[in-house]
């Protein structure tokens, strides 16, 4: 299935996704809510033949965390499907059953963005060390590396009074 056929199929079944392409072999979609996203991912895998899980890119979207799943097919089209979850309670389901290669990237979402991934099998964390402080997610925009103490492995932002 080539780029144009993918866009046609997605826009027919999931018009809210607004699938577009800005160059050959790339299809980007708009952010979707988790339930709609999971439905689209299953459709892409089981019906459109996108069976290779390439990558997950986490992004800080202000009040939300964005997760862009990059999957591919035999024609090597890169399809970017996106979901958005609130930063206050970010939770998604693991897609490891469909794409075993994405599990490592899901662990990365847990460590770097603080996204809870249910259904992820037990295993070592990735990529932060075991001593990393709980509740600190370094790829969120508000996390400032200047306040991270490498010697004590602690994150110490100035208190509100100090900042004033």
């Amino acid at each position: 299935m080539n780029t144009e056929e993918t866009i046609l199929a997605l826009n027919k079944h999931f018009p809210a996704l607004e699938a577009v392409s800005n160059r050959p072999l790339r299809v980007f979609t708009a952010f979707a809510e988790p339930k709609a996203f999971e439905e689209t991912l299953r459709y892409a895998n089981l019906t459109l033949g996108y069976h290779k899980g390439k990558h997950i890119i986490g992004t800080d979207e202000g009040e939300n965390i964005g997760l862009s799943y990059i999957i591919s097919n035999d024609e090597d089209v890169l399809l970017v499907l996106r979901e958005r979850v609130p930063k206050s309670a970010p939770h998604v389901h693991s897609m490891g059953e469909l794409y075993p290669s994405l599990m490592l990237h899901e662990r990365e979402m847990v460590d770097l963005f603080g996204v809870q991934v249910s259904g992820l099998p037990e295993g070592p964390r990735y990529p932060l060390p075991d001593c990393w402080p709980d509740g600190e997610y370094p790829m969120r925009k508000e996390w400032n590396p200047a306040y991270f103490n490498k010697q004590t492995v602690t994150y110490e932002p100035p208190k509100q009074e100090d900042a004033k």
């Binding site: 990529p127 370094p138 590396p145």
Partner: peptide
Amino acid sequence: AVIEIGYNHRGIEKA
């Protein structure tokens, strides 16, 4: 085999 990687993570993307 249980594999654990990430020892070389340097925060390049954040940098």
